[in-house]
Design a protein around this nucleic acid. Structure first.
Lengths: 319, 319
DNA sequence: TTGTAGGCGTTATCAA
DNA sequence: TTGATAACGCCTACAA
């Protein structure tokens, strides 16, 4: 392995001069710098990351934690984060699973962005307590080293309710997500509040954000229907797709017998027929903002929590 | 930051004793070991990764390189890799983008698994030349430090052709992928060979593995159709979905006027109606095998290239 | 069984 | 402008 020592030897200078030259310090002649850089290139020198970060006490890498790697959902988000980090000269690595959490205290990464309901809050808190900077995208936590970039779930829920009202809905079935989840909780709260305000009856059907739970919910709803159309607000697109799947097995029609609005604006929702009406937001922007926050946090700049706003996307699944 | 030094002080022993105790060396009493471990836990000690890997000259991390993070395609594959690596006590990080390539020569990772047509072959070769171990999933390369785990594209193509023959196809339109890609190339080669052998006429329509290119191809094909049904073998599901999209805008029907077989067995293909007939393979197994290969390569064990076999998945899009 | 000390490859502080 | 040298935190002969 070729190190600065080898370059120094080759160039007939000391290792410190090499280090200065390679790191753009103004303490060396322009001439020796270029000479040294030439030699470095010739020898295919690449600095050893372990040695460098041991000394510098930082890696310039941000870790993004996800519950799993599935779903087209993450694509845009990760893209946004990566783009955002690039602006600050940081690299991104994507991790999943309990063991990779150690990257944080091990100082393998300079900061973490978390969108992983699997990641225990206490553990996050513990790392924050040790002085590590963390941005969470899926929960609210109060700590000096933790910041949040959250979806405006309440706004999104209100948009959906607006549509239901405009559609003269007489009763709304709420296909909810996991009880413990922040997003699901907020959507449920805002929805019930809004529906109550407008005096529209509703019923909550517990789901868990997965397609099968949507399927089951539809099965249950269509077992003994009372009135038509059946209006559903699914708290995410995936469950809405589950509803589609079940309805397909019957003679009923989405958009006519069953009207449904989703949340997330996933690719699949845009593809199915009739197109799924849903609540959208920019996943790309979400990632960019998260990246910006974590870097500012690391650099000690003032950071404020931020929200990602939502819009309504029309679809023939409703009206 | 708490290091072994602090533990040593607290325990009243030397740092080497601490190191031995923590690393399970048989050179310390069982009693001192447990005492030291207790203190380490109490102080929330976590080893500094940079220091450790500087000394050990390895990180126990494998990097997986992807062209992008999009698509449900990667989910299962990454899951397989992660599971596979876990068996050997290795961690996985997922990377994308030119700058992250540096992780390899920087020795930030012990090995790389590459499924990224964006990653230049010469660069891979260069890293292999420096002694880094690499497993490629999307090309053939000949080097002592490079191994490949590839899809059995030829087998898959043959399976599709079998179906076309059984379906009495009189002419087959081949919706091909990017010319430079290994997978696309092999599928094309095997397909043309097989079709020629059976004397079935065919025509190649150049695509690029993206949905829009499938859409365009369908548009072109349906502009002045000559005979029915039109039989298509799309070299991946994504393009097949593009065909679906266009056909939807017409009065024609998939499975009747247009018969089509895809490749990859993606989630979307399983969802569309009529279900897309396609060539499947275990992405999970692909990942597991890749993980196994890279670890064996690192450990200096003998490694043989391997293939991932394919099966035919029935769908109403064909017959 | 435990302690001492040198080294992993870089960076950064002082002298020269 | 350059060079010697001490860290950074951990591991590991070798010595005690």
């Amino acid at each position: 392995m070729v190190g600065i020592k080898d370059i120094a030897q080759q160039a007939g200078v000391s290792i410190s001069t090499v280090s200065y030259a390679l790191n753009g310090s103004p303490k060396v002649t322009e001439e020796t710098r270029s000479r040294i850089q030439a030699i470095a290139k010739e020898l295919n020198y690449v600095p050893n990351m372990a040695a460098r970060s041991l000394k510098r006490r930082q890696t310039n890498i941000i870790g993004v934690y996800l519950a799993d790697y599935a779903g087209s959902f993450y694509g845009e988000l990760l893209d946004g984060i990566k783009k955002g980090l690039e602006l600050f000269g940081y690299e991104m690595i994507v991790c999943s699973g309990k063991k990779s959490h150690l990257f944080i205290p091990e100082r393998m990464i300079d900061g973490a962005i978390i969108l992983d309901w699997t990641f225990p809050a206490e553990e996050i808190l513990q790392y924050a307590q040790r002085g590590h900077q963390i941005v969470v995208l899926d929960r609210v936590m109060s700590h000096d080293n933790i910041y949040q970039v959250l979806l405006d779930n309440k706004g999104g829920a209100a948009l959906a309710i607006d549509q239901l009202i405009a559609g003269q809905s007489e009763k709304v079935y709420l296909l909810s997500g996991p009880e413990t989840g922040y997003d699901s909780y907020e959507r449920l709260e805002a929805t019930t509040k809004e529906l109550t305000r407008f005096g529209i009856p509703f019923e909550v059907i517990p789901g868990d954000f997965t397609e099968p739970s949507g399927y089951q919910a539809a099965k249950q709803l269509l077992a003994n229907p009372t009135q038509w159309p059946i209006d559903i607000f699914a708290f995410n697109d995936e469950m809405a797709i589950g509803v589609y799947k079940y309805v397909r097995e019957t003679a009923y029609q989405i958009g006519k017998d069953i009207r449904i609005i989703g949340f997330d604006n996933t690719e699949l929702g845009a593809f199915v027929q009739p197109r799924l009406a849903t609540i959208a937001y920019s996943k790309h922007r979400w990632g960019m903002v998260a990246a910006e926050k974590i870097i500012h946090a690391i650099q000690g700049d003032p950071v404020e929590d931020e929200h990602i706003y939502t819009t309504y996307v029309d679809g023939e699944s409703f009206i």
